[in-house]
Design a protein around this nucleic acid. Structure first.
Lengths: 218, 218
DNA sequence: TTAAAAATTTAGATATGGCTAAAAATAGGT
DNA sequence: ACCTATTTTTAGCCATATCTAAATTTTTAA
């Protein structure tokens, strides 16, 4: 159907569309894909010829309906495989991304249908990101950043914004696990760090951390 | 490490080495890879430069130690994935090959180590072929073709030589399953067909079938 | 409003893996 | 031994997905 590169471009455009409404710029896409702008232009033309994106010179790209559907399918596969790796194969959540990047391109509808069933239809991957269902629907629940939580209020940790191994290992080290309840004891206006109550202990959290943890309020 | 093409060539050479002792010929390899002899020559040169095969012009190729190790690793991955697909994801044994051809190239040692553990260290894939262990050792048991079994003798079906979907579906249709005991009632010298006792029923088997079923004697 | 800066595209090149057609080497039969 | 048929290799070309460097368009700011 589509090449590995094409699928990766579609996925990248999908992720960037959240931040760039009026079309994803060539440079933004080049940075996301860790390649050069000229390579992006070439690929974007190809995707456009295949009607996966809408593209006009110097105007950036947007996914077409087909392009979006394809991107969501790849994301679904990626997140199901991540869940499989953590739940069945003892992977830690900071080491699944790379392998899932490869597994997401395996072409077999039955494989994914059956994997989904085998995993009992998980709703979120190990980082708390929603797994779209077979129809491409995300089950987006209301979530907010820990940084937005007011002093005294509590929430349950449901996901991470940054899922770099460094951050995930920081969370492991501090026993911050998805599903855990946390309460804001104190906010420091000087550096926007906060003191939270978690695991029946107090923990100081920097702004950088609070800006990258999703919670839902009780 | 190695490209998808390189891995597929190594696998093909490994399989062909059983029949062609003195080096695998370019044409044989071309047929196995479903490509042209000229393309094979090019690739074989590349493999030779990487010391994965020993190659001299017009003399065919043999795997080097490294080449053989790599080929066996790929075969191990292929067969573990086939087992996973059948045992965990409800695939039939005639539909696993294509998907396993893709999965076998995923690069992660941990993935395979953990998959092996998760599957509880299976010794044979769904077609009865041995799965090499992490050290690359096949646990080859003594096996023979059903066609070689004498009249009156019994054996247990342990594998298939031909694993084409057509043949596998023929076996399904006739309830010939790995692990089943079968006894030769009569051999017809005219066409080398045989009458066997299996599942408490008599069944007529053509020479083509008997030449493609592995059994072990009791 | 126009010149400099930034972003984007084009042109031309590279590497991989494959192809066709032609040349070269080997193998077989007499 | 030699001529022919088969096998294998070489030479030159194609497509994908990259890259660098140069050209072009858009944006910004004086």
């Amino acid at each position: 159907m589509f090449s590995l590169s094409e699928e990766n471009y579609l996925k990248a455009i999908f992720h960037l569309e959240h931040n760039y409404q009026g079309g994803v710029s060539t440079n933004a896409l080049a940075e996301e894909m860790e390649t050069k702008a000229s390579s992006v232009t070439d690929m974007v033309k190809k995707l456009s010829e295949k009607n996966l994106v809408n593209y006009k010179k110097y105007q950036g790209v947007k996914l077409s309906a087909t392009g979006k559907r394809t991107a969501v399918e790849v994301i679904r596969k990626h997140r199901l495989w991540e869940y499989f790796l953590v739940e069945k194969l003892n992977f830690n959540w900071d080491e699944v991304h790379e392998v899932a990047e490869e597994l997401e391109h395996i072409k077999s509808e039955k494989l994914i249908t059956e994997l989904d069933r085998f995993l009992e239809y998980p709703r979120r991957d190990p980082h708390g990101d929603p797994i779209p269902d077979a129809q491409g629907n995300f089950n987006v629940s209301n979530r907010m950043l820990l940084a937005e939580l007011e002093k005294g209020k509590s929430g349950i940790c449901i996901g991470v914004k940054d899922s770099s191994p460094d951050f995930l290992r920081y969370l492991d080290k501090n026993k911050i696990v998805l599903g855990k309840e946390m309460q804001v004891i104190e906010k420091e206006s000087f550096d926007n760090s906060m003191l939270i109550n978690i695991n029946e202990q107090q923990l100081r959290i920097s702004q950088a951390v609070a800006m990258n943890l999703y919670i839902k309020t009780l």
